[in-house]
Simulated scan of single mutants.
Amino acid sequence: MIVEILLNLYSWLAALPFVTFIVIWFGVYLFLKNKKLTTRLSMDITMLFLIGSVSVIWNQLFQAKFGFWLIILVLLISFGLIGGYQNQAKGKTDLLKVFRVVWRLGFLTLSVLYIVLLLANILKNMIIPT
């Protein structure tokens, strides 16, 4: 019962991640009153919903089943590359800082991918109706 409620809530929030971002931003801003921190926290939370929505759109567009795992793989490879660069440049790796960089770059990348893939999916369905 609780799992079904959480899955339904996640699917509603992941359906429109930009609306979710705005709702989360205003909700967090009411408590924190700090725009910079609110924006960062909203980006971090919305990233969870972007992963789900982009992977579903990817799977629908390309008739695949690995969209989620592809996103996770790219995030892990990015984590390794940025962590390796930081280790080479500074002699040590701050894992929390690397995670933040990868997570926020992922937010920007998945936001663009969401728009591009959504438009491509709409065009595909207009040209080849299912």
Score class of each variant (00 low, 15 high):
62 F>N: 05
58 W>C: 02
48 L>S: 07
13 L>Y: 00
19 V>E: 06
62 F>T: 04
51 I>P: 06
9 L>Q: 03
82 I>T: 08
111 S>F: 00
87 N>I: 12
125 N>V: 04
82 I>D: 05
93 T>P: 04
86 Q>G: 06
75 L>N: 12
128 I>P: 09
67 G>E: 01
59 N>G: 06
108 L>W: 08
26 F>R: 10
81 L>Q: 11
53 S>W: 08
12 W>R: 14
37 L>D: 12
84 G>L: 00
8 N>S: 12
102 V>D: 01
57 I>E: 04
116 V>E: 00
4 E>W: 08
17 P>H: 02
37 L>F: 08
129 P>Y: 07
70 L>P: 07
101 V>E: 03
32 L>G: 07
119 L>Y: 07
7 L>R: 14
4 E>Y: 14
70 L>V: 15
56 V>R: 13
118 L>F: 03
42 S>Q: 02
63 Q>P: 12
15 A>K: 12
105 L>G: 04
9 L>H: 05
96 L>Q: 07
92 K>F: 12
85 Y>K: 08
112 V>H: 02
94 D>G: 05
71 I>H: 04
98 V>D: 02
54 V>F: 02
107 F>A: 01
53 S>T: 12
40 R>V: 15
106 G>V: 00
102 V>L: 06
105 L>E: 00
95 L>C: 00
41 L>M: 10
5 I>D: 03
29 Y>I: 08
130 T>K: 08
115 I>F: 03
11 S>R: 12
2 I>Q: 13
26 F>H: 09
101 V>G: 01
71 I>N: 04
69 W>A: 11
64 A>W: 14
27 G>V: 07
63 Q>D: 15
9 L>M: 05
128 I>N: 09
117 L>V: 00
61 L>T: 07
26 F>N: 11
78 S>W: 03
59 N>H: 09
38 T>N: 00
40 R>C: 14
25 W>D: 08
4 E>H: 09
15 A>Y: 14
9 L>P: 03
88 Q>P: 10
20 T>W: 01
123 L>Y: 13
38 T>D: 07
73 L>A: 13
127 I>M: 09
105 L>K: 02
92 K>I: 01
33 K>I: 13
16 L>N: 11
93 T>G: 01
2 I>P: 15
104 R>I: 02
89 A>L: 11
9 L>F: 11
76 L>K: 10
27 G>F: 08
99 F>A: 03
60 Q>G: 10
101 V>A: 04
5 I>N: 07
54 V>C: 01
19 V>A: 08
18 F>W: 01
31 F>K: 14
128 I>K: 07
14 A>R: 00
30 L>P: 10
17 P>Y: 01
